[in-house]
Design a protein around this nucleic acid. Structure first.
Lengths: 159, 159
DNA sequence: TCTGATCCCATGATATCCCACAATTTCCCA
DNA sequence: TGGGAAATTGTGGGATATCATGGGATCAGA
């Protein structure tokens, strides 16, 4: 498997460490770079995280703009300036920086949520809400498509 | 890691020294050149800083213009003319020149901000404002890109 | 001899490394 | 197919190294 899938809820220990779920670790290892690249998600209280693939994505985004151009500087400031590469200890744990925790309102437990090429880290309660809301929206959209019979028995919300 | 990321706020001591964040130091070491190359950022109250990679980039930028052309002279003046190479002491600290401090309005604390190939030094308050503004812009631009987002997943950035 | 720069050592707070362990899960082989 | 051995996983905590910072001593030039 080379994508982040499923979700896991884990605890921070007294030193603020969290284990990265085993299945995610093996995806990260495949990318072949030590450390976990993460940054505050732009438009939600969550942390975006991943390995070299995610870094490459950000780099490509910034690379579109000319060196020293205003836009590039701003992108770099907002993206590189707020991202960090967390060290992963021998047991596969990381320590979330205060800044990341504040952004996601994380205190003692976190939910890891696989999004394919990257994953997000949420405060579990907020994740549940977000999920419910997303499900709701999907359902509404399905409803609009109601004329098409396929949508009627929407496969619906898993979990 | 071979690029500057994240941001750190540090204090100047009574002698005007500031520690370069450890993670930045290791990036600089990789470039294999002693000293910190810096100059006042062109259009914002910040200091651009970096190692040999930054110097090379500037050289490339200037090299694109014909010798003796007006533009070349102006770039050279603005970049080379105002740049300095600060000495780094045994503990990884530098002393910012009065000129640099004045440009960035720095008094007793500074924010180091990673921009990938280089980093900037800001007065912390100004940095926060700039960050908020930049984040806003990125969000807006990402939204525009959203319409063509389908392309992102297709080729798949694995590796 | 004064001033500012440079070098060197000291120190508290983190961060990092390393070992431990219980609970599963996976594997293996009869 | 079952059951036990072995490897994995999430968690805990002590020991050590690193980092940011402070300040004395030394050195250079005026």
């Amino acid at each position: 498997m080379d994508r982040f899938v499923s979700n896991f809820t884990l605890r921070l220990d007294s030193k603020g460490r969290v284990s990265i779920p085993g299945s995610y670790r093996s995806v990260l290892d495949r990318g072949g770079f030590e450390g976990l690249y993460c940054y505050p998600a732009l438009d939600r209280p969550a942390i975006d995280a991943g390995g070299s693939a995610l870094m490459a994505e950000i780099e490509a985004l910034i690379g579109r703009y000319a060196p020293f151009s205003d836009q590039r500087e701003q992108f770099a400031l907002a993206l590189y300036g707020t991202s960090e590469t967390l060290k992963v200890d021998g047991e596969g744990r990381v320590v979330l920086s205060e800044n990341l925790k504040r952004h996601a309102r994380i205190t003692e437990t976190v939910a890891f949520v696989g999004l394919g090429h990257k994953f997000q880290i949420w405060e579990p309660g907020r994740f549940q809400n977000e999920l419910a809301e997303a499900t709701q929206k999907v359902r509404a959209l399905m409803g609009e498509l109601g004329s098409r019979s396929a949508a009627r028995d929407a496969p619906g919300a898993r979990e």
